[in-house]
Simulated assay, not measured.
Amino acid sequence: MTGSDFLRLDPRDAPSRGRTAWLTARIRAAVADATLGAGTRVPPSRELAEELSFSRGVVVEAYRRLTEEGLLVTNRGAGTRIAAAVGGGGGGGGPPIGAPAPGWPGGFPPPPPASTPSR
């Protein structure tokens, strides 16, 4: 299976502008519908970029955005994988991304205390 096959990506479907957003959305959707389960390794950025005929920067930026969202985890030397706490019914155990955290009043932790300026 090639790098782009894991998502059935067809670069002809990508817009000429906004390829990073397109790729990010495709990977995000594949996680949401459990096409990509927790722990699934995504292809190296160079490989996926070459197969899609995209610049490597497009793939690197898409992976960066998904990492910031908590959907991907990167381990130098071990590749990039779908985070363990996401996915459709994969038993990740945590609340869905963006959901309020259980156990906090209102669902979210309180803001940090305001620091007092030193005089």
Rank of each mutant, 00 (worst) to 15 (best):
E47T: 15
T35A: 13
V59E: 08
R41L: 15
L66P: 01
R28Q: 12
G91Y: 03
T24M: 02
V31T: 08
R19W: 05
A83Y: 08
T74P: 00
P44T: 06
G94A: 15
V60F: 01
A83K: 07
A34D: 15
P43D: 09
R65V: 00
L71W: 01
A83G: 04
G37F: 04
A85P: 03
T20W: 00
R19A: 12
I82E: 01
G93K: 02
R41W: 07
E51V: 11
P95N: 13
N75C: 05
R19C: 07
V58N: 11
R81V: 14
G94R: 14
V42P: 00
A84G: 07
R64I: 05
A38L: 03
P43A: 15
R81E: 09
G94S: 14
G70V: 09
G57D: 15
G91V: 02
G94W: 10
P95T: 15
N75V: 14
G92L: 06
R26M: 09
P44L: 05
G18C: 06
A21H: 05
V60M: 05
A29H: 11
R65K: 13
L23E: 01
G91W: 03
G89M: 03
A38H: 09
A29K: 11
L72M: 10
G88E: 09
I82M: 02
E51S: 12
G93H: 01
Y63M: 03
P96L: 14
Y63K: 02
A30Q: 06
P96T: 13
L48P: 03
T40Q: 14
V59Q: 04
L36D: 09
E51P: 09
G37S: 13
A21Q: 09
P44H: 08
L48S: 04
R19P: 00
S45D: 12
T80M: 00
G92H: 06
G77Y: 13
T67S: 15
A49N: 06
G39C: 11
S55P: 08
A49Y: 05
N75Q: 14
T74R: 12
G92C: 07
V58D: 07
L23A: 03
T20G: 03
T20H: 01
A30M: 08
I82F: 02
W22T: 04
T35M: 11
R76E: 10
Y63H: 04
